[in-house]
């Protein structure tokens, strides 16, 4: 199963892999949501939506329905 942003846990970091360009708005790309950049889930809003992210150093919130379209690879933390 592919991992997407909405399946991240709080304060988990990941690398953006790929997304469907027709669904993801240009504005989100301009804010740094591009393949290869890191993303961290900072907060989840009450009732589980939207999600508060740190994308490439930018702090922004998107809805789960958008987060579901962005495929990521979780960065394994060393123990």
């Amino acid at each position: 199963m592919r991992t997407t942003i909405n399946s991240l846990k709080k304060s988990e970091k990941a690398i953006i892999k790929d997304f469907d360009i027709d669904i993801i708005p240009l504005k989100l790309l301009e804010m740094g949501c591009l393949p290869g950049n890191t993303v961290e889930l900072l907060q989840i809003a009450p009732f589980g939506d939207p999600l508060y992210l740190d994308v490439n150093g930018s702090h922004l919130a998107i809805r789960v329905e958008t987060a579901r379209e962005i495929e990521v690879e979780i960065i394994k933390t060393e123990f």
């Binding site: 504005k27 804010m31 939207p50 930018s58 958008t66």
Partner: peptide
């Protein structure tokens, strides 16, 4: 319409 939502969370 396409629904999307991006909001910047400023400092």
């Amino acid at each position: 319409g396409k629904t999307f939502f991006v909001v910047e969370m400023p400092n």
